[in-house]
Design a protein around this nucleic acid. Structure first.
Length: 234
DNA sequence: GACCAGGCACATC
DNA sequence: GATGTGCATGGT
């Protein structure tokens, strides 16, 4: 049996309310997270690539190395040797891979925008997202992180924590993919870049502390929330 | 020593 | 289309 339109509307309203409640609980508990950590647009983008499947503390070491070497601009890195780059970002793990990925992104920037991020600002969000996704080494999460945190676009970022929390709290059916998860948050929240920014950062924060793969979520601010989709229909 | 961390591309079935 | 694997460091 398919849900009727009114049932769909009700479910959507429930989810929307639940997402807002989750945000309030997290914000009340943790306060503003001041994301993305990074002083420049290019530093944010670099961090987005370096943090792929990697602890942020390791990424910071790599970024510090780049800063100390005075390399944290597209121009400098464009002319810098990829093997030497790999050595500098070594603490971030997968360093040969990530050095190449950074180069791929910078190559895109020079090939199309004269090496200037400001020249890419003119693109509408869908086009910019498509171009980022076409870069080898930039997948959906990295692209969306760049869009939200470096270009201030209204895009919700989904990562492992976001997915884990959404599944544990039954905000979405098990097995939902990246796009479905993104749609869940993006379509059921006010279209507000600042909200998307803070919301994702808060999910990462609570995920790090309470929503680990095997741990029970004891003490989590979301512990007592009802599971949204735990209703008879589903 | 095992497990985990703010993924992605590619091979194989 | 789903599932498996390589990539790698550093903290717990």
């Amino acid at each position: 049996m398919l849900p009727t339109r009114s049932l769909k509307t009700k479910i959507k309203a429930m989810i929307s309310k639940q997402l807002t409640e989750i945000y309030q609980l997290l914000f009340d508990r943790f306060g503003p997270q001041h994301w993305w950590p990074g002083e420049t647009q290019f530093e944010i983008i670099t961090g987005a690539i370096l943090t792929q499947n990697t602890n942020w503390a390791n990424v910071e070491k790599a970024i510090d190395n780049l800063k100390s070497a005075g390399l944290l601009t597209p121009e400098k890195l464009y002319h810098f040797d990829v093997l030497q780059l790999a050595e500098l970002i070594r603490p971030a793990g997968y360093y040969h891979l990530k050095a190449k990925r950074l180069k791929n992104l910078i190559d895109w920037l020079f090939r199309n925008y004269n090496g200037r991020l400001t020249n890419a600002e003119d693109l509408d969000t869908d086009r910019l997202r498509a171009e980022l996704l076409a870069i080898k080494g930039v997948g959906p999460e990295t692209a969306d992180s760049i869009l939200l945190y470096a270009f201030n676009r209204n895009v919700f970022v989904v990562d492992t924590y976001t997915a884990r929390i959404a599944f544990r709290h039954k905000l979405i059916e098990p097995g939902a993919d990246y796009e479905q998860l993104r749609e869940l948050f993006q379509a059921n929240l006010p279209q507000d870049t600042k909200l998307f920014n803070e919301y994702h950062a808060l999910l990462v924060r609570v995920g790090k502390e309470f929503c680990k793969p095997k741990a029970r979520c004891t003490g989590c601010p979301l512990e007592k929330l009802p599971r949204t989709l735990d209703i008879e229909y589903f």
